[in-house]
């Protein structure tokens, strides 16, 4: 009897844990994408056009004349898909060809730095002056600045990277 009750408690506990983890994962999957920069960057608010020009490598310097260092998450991350779709308006192949051509034409000094995890994004944004990257908003940590886009912060109505 006691063993049966223990088993029921264990099963219920497992279900509760799985539900909680699933809810957290679902929340992460739906989280808005925050545009983050090094905390010393003078920018606080970008227009979506300005954000797009930065991610396309056409605007390469901040207004204080420091160089912009662009960080882009490696393939298969959800936040990369959002950025490619909403900012670049490109598929993976088009994105790859765009940067090969951009470097080959000497229009940029280098392609974006590729980051392989949210932790790597956080660490590079923290350590590199002028760095700009993107993260799910619930993974934004201390030591970095979340930019407003068109005056909106992630989660606010009208934020373009929901």
């Amino acid at each position: 009897m006691a063993r049966g009750a223990l088993r029921r408690v264990a099963v219920l506990g497992a279900i509760a844990l799985a539900t909680a983890l699933g809810a957290r994962e679902s929340q992460a999957q739906n989280a808005a994408i925050a545009i983050v920069t090094n905390s010393r960057t003078t920018a606080n608010d970008l227009s979506f056009l300005e954000l797009r020009k930065i991610f396309l490598g056409e605007k390469q310097f901040w207004d204080d004349n420091s160089r912009i260092i662009l960080l882009v998450r490696a393939p298969v991350a959800r936040e990369r898909d959002v950025v490619l779709t909403k900012i670049y308006r490109m598929g993976e192949a088009e994105f790859q060809q765009y940067w090969i051509a951009k470097v080959f034409r000497a229009e940029v000094s280098s392609k974006p730095k590729i980051v392989y995890s949210s932790d790597m994004t956080s660490e590079l944004v923290t350590v590199l002056p002028g760095a700009i990257g993107f993260l799910p908003v619930d993974e934004v940590g201390p030591g970095m600045k979340v930019l407003r886009i068109n005056g909106k912060l992630p989660g606010e109505t009208g934020y373009p990277l929901q």
Binding site: K113, E123, L124, L128
Partner: peptide, 10 residues
């Protein structure tokens, strides 16, 4: 913070 080489260089 544990990053080395060109990744941590501007």
């Amino acid at each position: 913070q544990g990053l080395v080489g060109h990744e941590a260089s501007p």
